[in-house]
């Protein structure tokens, strides 16, 4: 981690001066499931990475304790971006699904539009926890199965839905994180899902 951070600030691609609204979508999944690959395939910038540190007692702990006495946890994540139009820019975050990450969820990802759970069928257990936590945080999500060529199982989407105990209303799709059009489809599936939820809400008095 850390090596992908840009070393040439002067070569950054700046946003349009009219840019005013930042939006977030989080891509979450186990190690090596293809999060960075998906971010890279749709992003207009090379993925950058950054980190958040957190002291055991939380941010804003009594300053008299001094830094040295605190145990710190670091969560690293990478991100890319898509300028949707002159005013709106969408940031995509690739985030690890492990426990300490969820500890920071509210601080980093409150107000996120929604999430994509990226699944590798060879390690489906990793996805359980992410799905559970997203439900807990009431974050809408879709599940995308990143198909690896050397996966011998080729479970069907129905089988995967069952294995993950995924409710019928949560969209589940196949993808190839390396392919831009496929990554784009994943994002559109998520935002469509959010749109339908919003329409339902707005129709209900």
């Amino acid at each position: 981690m850390g090596s992908a951070v840009s070393e040439l600030p002067s070569r950054r691609t700046p946003l349009a001066d009219a840019a005013e609204t930042g939006l977030k979508i989080v891509i979450v999944g186990g190690f090596g499931v293809g999060k960075t690959t998906l971010v890279r395939s749709v992003s207009e910038i090379r993925p950058l990475n950054t980190e958040e540190v957190m002291t055991q007692a939380g941010v804003g702990v009594d300053e008299t304790h001094g830094v040295a006495a605190k145990t710190t946890t670091t969560v690293a994540f990478d991100f890319g971006r898509i300028s949707l139009n002159e005013r709106m820019v969408l940031y995509l975050f690739g985030a690890p699904g492990q426990e300490r990450f969820w500890f920071l969820w509210d601080r980093l990802f409150s107000g996120t539009l929604g999430a994509v759970v990226l699944v590798d069928t060879r390690r489906m257990d990793d996805s359980w926890y992410a799905i559970d936590r997203l439900e807990h945080h009431k974050t809408p999500f879709v599940v995308a199965v990143n198909r690896f060529d050397n996966d011998p199982s080729r479970y069907s989407l129905d089988e995967i839905r069952q294995a993950l105990a995924l409710p019928e209303h949560v969209p589940l799709i196949d993808c190839d994180a390396r392919v831009r059009s496929s990554g784009k489809d994943v994002l559109i599936t998520l935002v469509n899902h959010l749109y339908e939820q919003a329409m339902t809400r707005e129709m209900t008095p």
Binding site: A19, E20, T21, G22, L23, K24, I82, S83, L84, N85, M88, L90, D106, S110, G111, T112, L113, K184, L187, I188, V191, N192, L194, Y195, Q197, A198, M199, R201, E202
Partner: peptide
């Protein structure tokens, strides 16, 4: 600072008009 609309409160979910704009951009 130009703060995001969606994050102003945790409870405020994005409306359909905003999402429609996002969809247009993604397509």
């Amino acid at each position: 600072a130009r703060h995001p609309r969606a994050a102003q409160s945790v409870a405020s979910l994005p409306d359909s008009a905003l999402l429609q704009e996002v969809l247009h951009g993604l397509r």
